[in-house]
C-alpha cells in the first residue's frame, strides 16, 4: 500500500517533468528535465524492487544514478564545445624551450 502510493506519486511527478522536457523552450530546459527524470527513474527502480519484494533491484538503481550523471555531463559538454572527444592537438608544434618538459609517461 505504501509502496503503491509512493510509486503512483512518483509516476505523476515523472509525467509532469516529461511535460517540461517536451515543452521546454530551450534545449537546456530539456536537459534539466531529462536529468531530473533520470533521478526519478532511480527512485522508481528502487521502489519497484521493494514492490516486487526483490531489493536486489537497488544495484540497478545505483548504476542508473551513475549513468544518468555521466549522460547529463556528456550532453552538456557536447552543447558547450560541439564535440565529445579530448582537446584536439594544437597544430603548430610546441616551441622547443617548453618542449623539454616531461611529456607522456613519468
Amino acid at each position: 500500500m505504501l509502496f503503491v502510493g509512493a510509486t503512483a506519486g512518483l509516476l505523476v511527478a515523472m509525467a509532469l517533468v516529461m511535460c517540461r522536457a517536451l515543452l521546454g523552450p530551450t534545449a537546456y530546459d530539456r536537459v534539466l528535465a531529462l536529468n531530473n527524470f533520470g533521478t526519478k527513474t532511480v527512485l522508481l527502480i528502487a521502489l519497484l524492487g521493494f514492490l516486487a519484494g526483490r531489493p536486489d533491484f537497488l544495484d540497478l538503481s545505483l548504476i542508473y544514478a551513475l549513468i544518468n550523471f555521466i549522460g547529463t555531463i556528456a550532453v552538456l559538454k557536447y552543447f558547450e564545445q560541439g564535440r565529445l572527444g579530448a582537446e584536439p592537438r594544437a597544430l603548430p608544434p610546441e616551441p622547443p624551450e617548453r618542449g623539454s618538459e616531461h611529456e607522456g609517461g613519468p
Binding site: G9, L10, V12, A13, M14, L16, V17, N36, K40, L43
Partner: peptide, 9 residues
C-alpha cells in the same frame, strides 16, 4: 518529489 515536479513546470 511532486512539489519539485510542479516547480519545474
Amino acid at each position: 518529489l511532486l512539489t519539485g515536479a510542479i516547480g519545474i513546470l
